[in-house]
Simulated assay, not measured.
Amino acid sequence: MTTKQHSPDSPVKHRHRPEGPQRHIVVFVFSIVLTLIAFAAVAAGGVNPTFAVILLLVMAVLQVILQMGFWMHLKDKGHMMPIIFMLGGFFIAGTCIIMSLYWVWWD
């Protein structure tokens, strides 16, 4: 395998540094904290059900963003096609859910 050498006058001086476990540990701890908050909100029992559902949905979206970005490395360069396909899938799934709810509750 050959490596590409840059001359000292080359404008490209950045080297790719491997991502260490520090970010993964921070994201893992943040995910655990979000899970504990969700569990506490439901286990408390005195929380308004509407607030609990909204809180759970917001924390679920945060979990998805964190896990897609850091664990699946979608924050890195060169991952635009998987992101586009996932957004397309979310759009189609959301449309199907909305239309099925509309169809069920049609007067």
Rank of each mutant, 00 (worst) to 15 (best):
Gly78Pro: 06
Lys75Glu: 05
Val104Asn: 10
Arg23Thr: 15
Leu55Asp: 07
Val26Ala: 15
Met1Trp: 02
Gly88Thr: 02
His79Arg: 14
Pro82Lys: 02
Met72Asn: 07
Gly89Met: 04
Val26Gly: 02
Ile84Val: 15
Leu62Asn: 09
Cys96Arg: 06
Val58Glu: 07
Leu57Pro: 00
Asn48Thr: 01
Gln22Asp: 11
Met68Asp: 04
Met72Asp: 04
Thr2Gly: 03
Val33Phe: 08
Trp71Glu: 13
Asp107Val: 10
His24Glu: 11
Pro11Asn: 07
Leu56Ile: 11
Leu34Trp: 02
Ala41Phe: 03
Ala93Asp: 09
Phe28Asp: 06
Ile37Leu: 14
Gly89Ala: 12
Ala40Asn: 08
Leu57Lys: 04
Phe90Glu: 09
Pro21Glu: 08
Trp105Leu: 14
Phe39Lys: 10
Pro82Asp: 06
Ser31Gln: 12
Gly89Arg: 01
Thr50Trp: 11
Ile84Cys: 05
Thr35Leu: 15
Lys4Thr: 15
Met68Glu: 04
Ala38Glu: 03
Glu19Thr: 15
Gly94Trp: 01
Ala41Ser: 14
Pro8Met: 01
Ala44Pro: 00
Gln63Gly: 01
Tyr102Val: 08
Cys96His: 03
Thr95Gln: 07
Met80Asp: 14
Lys4Leu: 15
Thr3Ser: 05
Phe39His: 07
Asp9Thr: 15
